[in-house]
Design a protein around this nucleic acid. Structure first.
Length: 560
RNA sequence: CGGGGCGUGGCGCAGCUUGGUAGCGCGCUUGCUUUGGGAGCAAGAGGCCGGCGGUUCAAAUCCGCCCGCCCCGACCA
């Protein structure tokens, strides 16, 4: 491709609306343009990179026996009503009516459709197992699109679905996907972790996510050297146990001292000796959530125990507990309570449900009763529950996920098969996603430097960027054209910058675009009968004689 | 949905406090020069100042409503 004909509008300045590195660079390098919040146009270079990622995905999916198909984006509401997600999912699903007044939905995901297909076409255990996949557009009316292409309202996804007769067979397909995913992310040149994850709205019991470490990520994971790794939504840890004082409930005056910080300073005690009491409201009434003063609530964990909830307002707190914010506690409070398991043993200071007062010496089982559960957020350096080493926490981009669905979709949609003894059984399903655009963003986030993008060879829009310094010079042009033709003939993807712009602009654009190798042909190299080659990642420079330049460039490329 | 910020040529911004008919840098066009790190000189083109309404002799500027975009939170296959 010649740069003089390539549509790649580059920008000198960072766009005002971009925050994330990948967002800034994708716009500056002319990969994408934003149409509206969460809606992006992929320009030629951006599309080229996404296509390369998709090609790798296809190769690896095909390699585990998955078969590509394509499903509609527009669905009849009926199948979503059958699985219950029509009701369960709220504003995040785009809904519309067709001319006949029938309810339709725009696909957020395709479990319903693929299961409909399986219900119609799978009859016998002899038809199983199957793995079907597609790379297709998904639409979600995101509450908050953000970070460029990381969270958008329309995006493509590779989604695959496995259909098995039993759990063991599902486990095999699950493992095959783990293998395929690992190879895909490796080949795309990004660092990633596989972590335990919350099945969430997908349903099912087992789920893992593939996470690429990046400051732009929206998720956090806990990691242990022993291999334990989990999304913070469900990560577990063993907290330090403090020295507790004597038991014996006693009211103490704490005038105008409300927060954990204030109380611990006022009483000169470790925050871990206090109970943090949070009142939340559910459909079934108020619930008191309790944590140690040095801990924070992991809302997703509480959510799984008490369902959807919201913090109580100050007025509600007053009405329900009789005290204001900062003075509430479990003692004498007759409502549902959920305490973090770290409160099971110990002697704590708690709010007295009376303005200006706390109790000290409160003991679970003696002074109050509560349900116990893990509802705290893991903190860095807490102990791993499996090996005792220290956990670290990293910010990550979710690039893929895998779920064991079981019969959550096959049952309501009637996807069954006849087993060996002629008995009808529900098909056991799995569902597996990858976000190609997120892989692209993660690669940029993880590798870029202050000059621009640095592509891994496997997904670079071009492998070699030939900078022809003076296109007006016939000698330089002849050399560049020959090299361009030779490299292309050898199968390499080459961008020839033949634009009549100043050398500085060419070099800056080459760095911004981030192709793995930049070949420079100018006055200096012509005089020496050589070409200059710079490796974008690391900046290493080489000089190759003209006669063997193409071969040397290609072997240098292979070595990257 | 809650909180905050922003909206002025293609891009990045100033002007708004104290109303008086729009400016800077980059980019773009033409010409000449230049040619290994975002070139120089000269001449140009390009803006219903997000929208609607109000106040006023007069609104980019003041007031109200709305829309859009970004950030934090909630939410999130």
């Amino acid at each position: 491709m010649r740069a003089s004909r390539l549509f790649f509008p580059t920008l000198k300045d960072d766009p005002a609306e971009a925050e994330a590195i990948s967002h800034k660079l994708m716009i500056r390098a002319g990969l994408v343009r934003q149409l509206a919040a969460g809606l992006y146009i992929y320009l030629p270079l951006g599309l080229k990179v996404v296509d390369k990622v998709c090609r790798i995905i296809r190769e690896e999916m095909n390699a585990i026996g998955a078969q590509e198909l394509s499903m509609p984006i527009l669905h009849p509401a009926e199948i979503w009503q059958k699985t219950g997600r029509w009701q369960e999912i709220g504003d995040e699903m785009f809904r519309l009516k067709d001319r006949g007044g029938r309810d339709m939905v725009l696909a957020m995901t395709h479990e319903e459709v693929i299961t409909w297909l399986a219900a119609h076409e799978i009859r016998s255990y002899r038809d199983l197992p199957q793995v079907w996949y597609q790379i297709q557009t998904k639409l979600r009316d995101e509450a908050r699109p953000k970070s460029g292409i990381l969270r958008t309202r329309e995006f493509i996804m590779k989604d695959s679905y496995s259909f098995d007769t039993d759990e063991e067979s599902l486990e095999q397909n699950y493992q095959l996907h783990i293998q395929a995913y690992s190879r895909i992310f490796q080949r795309c040149g990004i660092r990633f972790y596989m972590v335990e994850s919350d099945p969430g709205m997908m349903g099912g019991a087992t789920a893992h996510e593939f996470m690429a470490p990046s400051a732009a990520g929206e998720d956090e994971v806990a990691l242990c050297p022993c291999g334990y790794s989990a999304n913070l939504e469900l990560a577990r840890s063993v907290p330090e146990v403090p020295e507790f004082p004597q038991a014996g409930l006693e009211e103490i005056a704490t005038p105008d001292v409300r927060t954990i910080d204030e109380v611990s300073k006022f009483l000169n005690v470790d925050p871990a000796l206090l109970i943090k009491s949070l009142l939340v409201m559910t459909d079934a009434g108020p619930v008191l959530a309790m944590l140690r003063g040095d801990q924070e609530l992991q809302d997703s964990k509480l959510n799984r125990i008490i369902g959807t909830h919201r913090p109580a307002s100050p007025a509600e707190i007053q009405a329900i507990t009789g005290a204001g914010t900062g003075f509430i506690g479990p003692v004498g409070l007759n409502l549902r309570k959920v305490a973090d398991e770290s409160l099971e043993r110990g002697v704590f200071i708690v709010g007295a449900n009376k303005d200006g007062y706390h109790y000290k010496g409160a003991v679970l089982g003696h002074d109050f009763e509560t349900e116990l559960a893990d509802i705290r957020r893991v903190k860095p350096d807490e102990t791993c529950p499996f090996c005792g080493k220290r956990l670290s926490i990293e910010q990550v981009i979710e690039i893929g996920n895998i779920f064991k669905l079981g019969t959550k979709y096959s049952e309501p949609l009637g996807a069954t098969y006849l087993n060996e003894s002629g008995k009808e059984q529900n098909i056991i399903m799995g569902s597996y996603g990858i976000g190609p655009a997120r892989i692209v963003a993660a690669a940029i986030e993880q590798l870029a430097d202050e000059k621009g993008i640095i592509w891994p060879v496997s997904i670079a829009p071009f492998a070699i960027h030939v900078a022809l310094v003076q296109p007006a010079d016939s000698q330089q042009t002849a050399i560049a054209e020959k090299l361009y033709a030779d490299l292309m003939a050898a199968g390499a993807e080459v961008l020839l910058d033949d634009r009549a712009v100043s050398p500085g602009v060419k070099f800056k654009d080459a760095e911004l675009l981030g192709c793995p190798l930049r070949v420079t042909i100018g006055k200096r190299t012509v005089a020496e009968g050589s070409v200059e080659v710079q490796v974008r990642h690391g900046g290493e420079e080489h000089k190759f004689e003209l006669g063997t330049a193409a071969d040397n460039i290609l072997s240098l490329l292979d070595s990257l």
